[in-house]
């Protein structure tokens, strides 16, 4: 199968993730969309590793998974704290700083 198709899928996933970050209001969903974008980048890395015929891209994918896991730890901690203070995880409610 043509490897370029995986690049199209990756670009599509990245776009879905980016649109999700912009339009969704729940912090958890926004965060999931960011993770989707990271995975889209991972897919692109692995596809390019296949196209270029070396392993570096696959190595990057492993690093990205570890970093994404760390990001989940920090991100969920912040979102849970803010949920406990406000009883809401909506990013629209967090608007004290605009005023």
């Amino acid at each position: 199968m043509n490897a370029a198709n995986y690049l199209y899928v990756s670009a599509l996933l990245f776009t879905i993730g980016a649109i999700g970050v912009v339009v969704r209001r729940n912090a958890i969903v926004v965060f999931m969309c960011v993770e989707l974008m990271l995975n889209a980048a991972n897919l692109a890395f692995v596809t390019f590793a296949r196209i270029n015929g070396n392993l570096e891209g696959q190595v990057v994918a492993f690093f990205t998974m570890v970093v994404a896991a760390c990001e989940v730890v920090v991100g969920l901690a912040i979102i849970v704290t803010i949920y406990r203070s406000r009883r809401s995880a909506s990013v629209d409610d967090a608007s004290l700083l605009k005023r």
Binding site: A27, F31, L96
Partner: peptide, 10 residues
């Protein structure tokens, strides 16, 4: 402060 952390993080 928590709001700043959330915005910075996302």
């Amino acid at each position: 402060s928590q709001e700043a952390a959330l915005k910075y993080f996302l």
